[in-house]
Design a protein around this nucleic acid. Sequence first.
DNA 1: TTTATGAATTAGACTCGTCTAAACTCTCAC
DNA 2: GTGAGAGTTTAGACGAGTCTAATTCATAAA
Lengths: 234, 234
Amino acid sequence: MLSDVMEDYLKGIYDLQREGGAPVETSLIAGSLDVTAPTVTSMMEKLEERGLVAREKYEGVELTDEGETVAVEIIRHHRLLEAFLVDHLDYEWTEVHEEADVLEHHISEEFEERIAERLGDPTVDPHGDPIPEATLEPPTADETRPLGEFAVGDCVVVARVRDRDEDELEYLAEAGIVPGRRLVIEEKAPIGMLTVSHGDGQQNLPDEVAGTIRAQTVDVDTEEQSDARHVTEL
Amino acid sequence: MLSDVMEDYLKGIYDLQREGGAPVETSLIAGSLDVTAPTVTSMMEKLEERGLVAREKYEGVELTDEGETVAVEIIRHHRLLEAFLVDHLDYEWTEVHEEADVLEHHISEEFEERIAERLGDPTVDPHGDPIPEATLEPPTADETRPLGEFAVGDCVVVARVRDRDEDELEYLAEAGIVPGRRLVIEEKAPIGMLTVSHGDGQQNLPDEVAGTIRAQTVDVDTEEQSDARHVTEL
DNA sequence: TTTATGAATTAGACTCGTCTAAACTCTCAC
DNA sequence: GTGAGAGTTTAGACGAGTCTAATTCATAAA
């Protein structure tokens, strides 16, 4: 059995690998999990022994297939839980992350199956992030891009608003930046800020925030596929 | 903050104190949590330092008010979770204990409140055990007695079937021994066995099992108050 | 080619929860 | 009133996960 701490490392490595590719360096992991570098090194040794990561000293690590499967499973738990909390326990989509982050390590397979069934096997969580299938196939490449990568004048649909700080998410929700929302990129200011507009007005976003929001160019089919739950709330 | 291990000790001590009164001896705790006596001693020192138990060396411990409040809170979590799993996720009442035993340490106050609300603030869990109030007042004395304490000929209503081994509970459910069920004590055999009967026949119960089932003498009002969910299932 | 700098690893320590083995305390029977 | 036996505590160890301080490595600059 794996400790919940190990599961957190695996999940963290998975995310970093998705963003920046392998190998993932010690310091990146340390930053993302808020521990020191030596702590990461010793944990990587343990994960390597268990065959969950491949390690190259002084270079970094990469998840093995087995490690990736574990990470995907935890992510499935997380996102199903978020969807469940919103749909069945009246949580706001901005406040589910913390709860899911703890529970993801403690629910049984039974529980996972039952909430998935109860939710009708959803494919997307309340932040717009895709929910991995029960088979735990690693999800295929992703058609969305960070908001900051689009050009001025592009018309896009918000796909995901990365779950992190609750206040930040609430602010964005208030400003109408929610999954499913259609935006136009208005301006890219040289001070590290992006301006977008939608039906109800304009919004400035620091580059850091724009980097955590993913979108794709407008496409009516895709737009309807996406989970419109939050849009209807506003 | 308290570790989940500490919470388990507190819960264990609470139960033992309810059953056998204070002080609770080291060996009892060791038996109930399946650890060795020295482990218990060292944990009791820590709990004493934190003001959660009062300890008398070589005698045993007793929960302080603060320790009792923690225990009651965990028990509230456990029983609300059991009720939630049965009512909203189609679990059988015989299979909820394990899941609740883990999750009880990891749900937030928010989660607790929301499932309580969703369930309509129930007062009894699927095993018939009372759910402590949100105020965490220690529940008052209990009118039920273990089945073994009744006399031959008594007519009783099952109040609780202690949650423990899943197979055992399934067997009992199959045999019609479920909360809310009316039984007659037929015989107390000198080999440590009790015979009860109900509408559908007779059932023999080893004393050990009869000790974990609580009941009260028949009283129509009480009977209707009790949660009849499982009876209707059979 | 050599060196300086930044990142990674090793060394050693600490807490938590657990164990086994040894020492201690309490009580009850004689 | 003493000693035997049961139960409790002390002593010392270990693995997990973390830290700080010291060392080693890789690389980019001179």
